[in-house]
Amino acid sequence: MKHRAVGAVLFGGGVLLLALAAGLVFVVKPAMTKLPYDLDSSTSVAEARNATFLQITNGAAAINQADLKSTILVTPERDKTAALSGDLAGDAVVWRVGQTVDRTDTKELVSAYGAELALDRVSGAAVEWSEGYLDDSGTQEKVPYAGQIYKFPFHSDQTDYEVFDRDLRQTRVAAFKGTEDVNGLEAYRYEQVITDEKLPLPADRVGLLLGALAPGATSGDVVYSNTRTVWVDPVTGSYLKVREQQKKVLVPNTGAQVTLLDADFAYNDETVASSVERAKESRGQLTLLGVYAPLGLAVLGLAMILVGLLVSRDRGRGVATGRHAANTAPTRVDQPVVRDDQRQSGPLSDEIPPASTNWKSDEPTVPGQRAPRSDSDRS
């Protein structure tokens, strides 16, 4: 009975471990490959050496040269995420993003923008949300966000992706260009090339630029080029390194063109290092809970089930063998009959000698057998 109970406990424990392993694979791991609701804020810094840029100070526009620092702060909006409804509820998160570009020498602000948008929790792509906006001119503007913008999908593929460009307010293809090592971590490199495209700027803004930088011009366009390269962790889809080679040129209908921006921004070493460390930590959690833990639980569970079955089976065999031995034990009744002429006596035999009236002992202490009485004696 004890062996049977032990076997049942082992078998049940093994089944439970297999269920836990399946739960990690089919429930926990998919949940971990989604943007979390409680994601911490993150900051990335990119620097551009000896950049050419437009700077407006006290209403006066000038083209200057200096080193620039771009700082982007991403903050999850938990309350707005919780308020999402319809198709977005549970499947999207809301992020608030702010960027400032400063001169590193004078610490003066050169440009800034703010935005709020909703991202799909799995693909990381922007999704349509009625409250999303972009503010890069002092006024919030409704923008049709789409494609990848601050993140790539979990388990990114070696293929092309649509990446949103803030200046164009549209997506352009970022082509997969291969794999590279970034601080000891394999990264997928994607490249988006934008060449001489007109920016969708309001006419009044273009007019202000023309009046300050191209006197005599009555119309014009701002032409934009950018080679954006992103190095992505293929497991988590997070950016490990970003480089943007930007150029904006004012092209008036008369007069010389004016370069408004010519800068090569790239993540600084500290941002790259912290991005890689976060990706490694996330990778480790995914590997532990998605691979090693389920595999270990499955192996242990199968071993417990097997041992439980063996224990129960051995106990059954022991009981059956005991019963068979009890039922088939030989008795003296089953032994062959021994004839008198085959019996042996002696000190090593447990057989009882047959009764006889014809034996006599020579020992004086043993009385001899009396002779048969004659008729005369009887009388």
Score class of each variant (00 low, 15 high):
residue 34 K to G: 03
residue 268 N to L: 00
residue 238 S to L: 11
residue 179 T to R: 11
residue 70 S to I: 03
residue 119 L to M: 08
residue 5 A to W: 13
residue 304 M to H: 06
residue 352 I to E: 11
residue 119 L to K: 03
residue 32 M to T: 11
residue 377 D to K: 09
residue 326 A to R: 08
residue 137 S to L: 12
residue 16 L to S: 11
residue 258 V to T: 10
residue 174 A to S: 11
residue 63 I to N: 05
residue 173 V to K: 10
residue 23 G to V: 05
residue 225 S to H: 03
residue 266 A to G: 03
residue 181 D to M: 07
residue 200 P to K: 12
residue 210 L to H: 00
residue 239 Y to W: 09
residue 324 H to A: 14
residue 251 V to M: 02
residue 59 G to I: 12
residue 106 T to A: 06
residue 140 Q to N: 07
residue 126 A to Y: 00
residue 175 A to N: 08
residue 122 V to P: 08
residue 66 A to I: 11
residue 210 L to I: 06
residue 284 G to I: 05
residue 10 L to D: 01
residue 117 L to W: 13
residue 325 A to T: 11
residue 373 R to W: 11
residue 48 A to Q: 07
residue 68 L to M: 04
residue 357 T to G: 15
residue 331 T to S: 01
residue 291 V to R: 12
residue 158 Q to F: 01
residue 8 A to V: 06
residue 262 D to N: 03
residue 41 S to I: 09
residue 161 Y to W: 02
residue 131 E to S: 15
residue 12 G to H: 06
residue 256 A to K: 11
residue 30 P to L: 04
residue 33 T to M: 12
residue 239 Y to L: 13
residue 297 L to Y: 08
residue 249 V to A: 05
residue 233 D to Q: 07
residue 253 N to M: 01
residue 34 K to W: 09
residue 377 D to V: 06
residue 65 Q to M: 12
residue 370 R to H: 15
residue 40 D to Y: 13
residue 236 T to P: 00
residue 192 Q to S: 04
residue 274 S to W: 11
residue 378 R to M: 10
residue 300 L to P: 09
residue 378 R to Y: 13
residue 296 G to R: 05
residue 184 G to L: 02
residue 124 G to R: 05
residue 234 P to A: 08
residue 11 F to G: 10
residue 374 S to A: 10
residue 294 P to F: 01
residue 222 V to K: 00
residue 225 S to M: 02
residue 270 E to L: 07
residue 239 Y to D: 10
residue 2 K to Y: 07
residue 165 D to V: 02
residue 145 Y to V: 08
residue 363 E to G: 15
residue 125 A to F: 07
residue 178 G to S: 02
residue 328 T to K: 03
residue 252 P to M: 02
residue 188 Y to A: 04
residue 106 T to D: 03
residue 84 L to I: 01
residue 113 Y to R: 14
residue 326 A to I: 01
residue 60 A to E: 15
residue 110 V to M: 04
residue 370 R to T: 14
residue 233 D to R: 03
residue 38 D to M: 08
residue 194 I to A: 01
residue 1 M to A: 12
residue 315 R to A: 15
